[in-house]
Nucleic acid binder design. Sequence first.
DNA 1: CCGTCGAGCTAAACCGAGTTAGCAACGACT
DNA 2: AGTCGTTGCTAACTCGGTTTAGCTCGACGG
Lengths: 343, 343
Amino acid sequence: MHQKRVTLADVAKAAGVSRTTASLVLSDRGDELRISEPVQHRVRQVAAELAYRPNAASQVLRTGLSRTFGFISDTVATSQLAGDMIKGALEGARRHDHMLFIGESEGSEDEQARLIQAMVDRQVDGIVIASMFTRERPVPRGVGRPLVFLNTVPAEDHAQVPVVIPDEIGAGRAAARALLDAGHREIHLIGAGPALGDVPPLTIAGQERLEGILRELDGAGLEPASGRRCSIWLPEDGWQATTALLQSGVTGGAILCFNDRLALGAYQAIQEAGFRVPQDFSVVSFDDHQLASWLRPGLTTVALPHYELGRRAVEALLAPAQADTRFERVPMPLRARGSIAAP
Amino acid sequence: MHQKRVTLADVAKAAGVSRTTASLVLSDRGDELRISEPVQHRVRQVAAELAYRPNAASQVLRTGLSRTFGFISDTVATSQLAGDMIKGALEGARRHDHMLFIGESEGSEDEQARLIQAMVDRQVDGIVIASMFTRERPVPRGVGRPLVFLNTVPAEDHAQVPVVIPDEIGAGRAAARALLDAGHREIHLIGAGPALGDVPPLTIAGQERLEGILRELDGAGLEPASGRRCSIWLPEDGWQATTALLQSGVTGGAILCFNDRLALGAYQAIQEAGFRVPQDFSVVSFDDHQLASWLRPGLTTVALPHYELGRRAVEALLAPAQADTRFERVPMPLRARGSIAAP
DNA sequence: CCGTCGAGCTAAACCGAGTTAGCAACGACT
DNA sequence: AGTCGTTGCTAACTCGGTTTAGCTCGACGG
C-alpha cells in the first residue's frame, strides 16, 4: 500500500549533487553556505519534477521539532462550543504551518496523562489543555514542552502556565449594561444570584459573570430584583426558574440568564404564560450558542469567543512567554438581536 | 525547553546489555530471539525505572507506521454534528492506540490536498475524508495510504474507496412509520417534497430521506398531504414553510420536517398560530440535534449517528477492505420524545 | 614558486529506534 | 578430538533527513 516516496537522496542523485547540497538548497540555506545559483536552480527544479516531499519523521528525529501541536480537551462533543474552539485552534496551527493532534480526556486525569504522553512521544511542539467550562485544574508536571491552559485556571498558584480565558467579568458588565441602557431597573437573574457567591459549584464562569453583573448594577445604584440559582444550566432549569418567577407575580421587566440554554427555557416559560419577548420581558444571556439566532425574536447574548480562544491558545504556544502574556483575557462581545426593548 | 529523553541506549547501558537486546525485549520479541528470562526481567525493570518511552519519530522512520490517523472534514464548526463525529473518530483511534490529526478543508479542494499532503508527510496510517452533509466528492488520487469516505460518496464510480454513510432511506421510512403508527393519514412535509426529486440541490440526505418517506407512505397506500421544498434548512425556513401551511387552512395533522432546525421553525409557527404540539400537530424530524431534547415537548426525531459514523470510519481504515465493507450504511435510530400523538 | 584565502561543494557523523546476520560458549554425539 | 546444534546475545546496517567539519580548486599576493 505504501508506495515508495521520493527521498532527498533521489533528488540529489538526479541533480548530480550530494545529499548535503540538496538539503541545504531545499532548506533555503544555500546562499548562507555558498551553493552557486545554477546548482540551486537545478536542485529545486529536480525536486519539483520528482514532486519531492521531505519525510517529516526524519526531520523530527533530527531536529526535535515536529511542526505539530496537541490539543486536549475534557469534552469535544458539547455543542459547537468545542467545534469552534477546535476550528480556532486549527487556524492557529495553520498560520504557523503546523498540524494538530486532538485528544479528549473526558475529565479523567489518567486519560489526560496518557494523551500527553502519546503526544510528547510524537514530539509535539506544544500542548493546549482546554476545558469546555472554565474551571481549575492541576498542572501536568514534567511535560517538557510548552503548555497553555485554555478556559482553565491552574490549581496551584506557583504554576507557571500561560492561561487563555474569556473575560467573563466584562461579559457580566456588558449584559447588565445592555439592559440598563434600554432603561430597565428591575432585573431578574436566572441561573445564579442574587448575591455574590450564589453560583453553581465549580463554575468560574458563573462566579465571574455574576460579579460583573453586580458591579455594573451597583454602578447604577441597583441590585438585582431577584435571582434564582440553578444547579445545572439546561433549558429545563431555566424553564422552571422562570415559571417560578412568573408565578411570584412578576408581569414584566428584564430577565438576565446565565447562559443561552437557560434563556431558551425562559422563552418557553414566558410564551407558555402568555407573555411576549421583548414586549413584556426583555431577555439577555451569555454564550451565543447557535440557538440564540434561531429563537424568535433572536436572543441578545454576550458571545463566548470560542474561535478566538482556540486560536490564541495555540498561538500562545509559540509566543515567548512574557509576564504580560501569561494571563490572556479574551473579550466577550455583545451580539445584539431582538430580545431587548424598553420596559 | 526540551529536556533530554531517556533513549533505548540509556536503558541498554543501565541494564548492561546491547541496544539490540533491549529493543528485542521491549518489543516483546525476547522469547522469539531467545533472550533469557533474567535478562528480559532486568531490561524491563530498568526501562520502567527510567520511565523509558520510545521516540515515536524514530519508530516511524524505521517502520513506516506512525500509529496516527488523519481526519479531514469540510467543516468542523457546525454544531455538535462535527463534535460527535470527531468524538467517535477519537474513540476509534483510541481503540487501536492511535492518535488523530484533525484538519478542516472548508470545502476547498486545494486546502484538502494540502492537508492530505501534510498528513502523508507525517506518515499517517490512513485518512478519513468526512463531510458534514452527505454529498459527492472526487476521490483524491495518489495518496498511497488507506482512505475512507465518511458521509461522502465518491464522484467517480470506478473509484475504490470504502464509504461510511448513514442509512437515510431507512431513516425516512422510520419517520414516516412513526406517524403512521400513531394513526396519522394526513402528513405534511416541510423541507422537501411532495414528489420525488423535490429536494434542495446537492443533498443526498434530502433525496434519500424523501425516498424512504415516500416508499413507506406508499406501502400504506398514501401520499404526502403536501410538501414544501426549502432551499436551506434553517429554522427561519421551517417557520416560513409551516406558516404558509397553516395559512392554507390546515388546522391539524402531522408535520414531517427534514431536519431538526426546520422543526424548530415549525414549533415556533405552530405556537404563534395558537396551535399546540402534539395535541393539534404531531411533529417528527431528523438529526437528533441537541435542540430536539430541549424543545417543549421534546422533539421525536431520527438520529444521525455521528458518533458511530466517526468511529466506524476510522476503524474502517484498519479493516482489510472487503467487498462487503466497501459501503457501510449505519442505521439511524428513532428517538421517541413527546411530539407525536394520535390525530 | 609557495602560501593564503575564499568560493563551492561534500564526506561523515548524527538523531533513536528496528532488523539481519552471525559470533561465542557450551554440551552432546560420533 | 572433532563436529554439530543450541542457547544467548551483539555488531552493524537501515530508515531519511540535518549539520559539522573539512576538502579541493583557483586566484592572488609576496
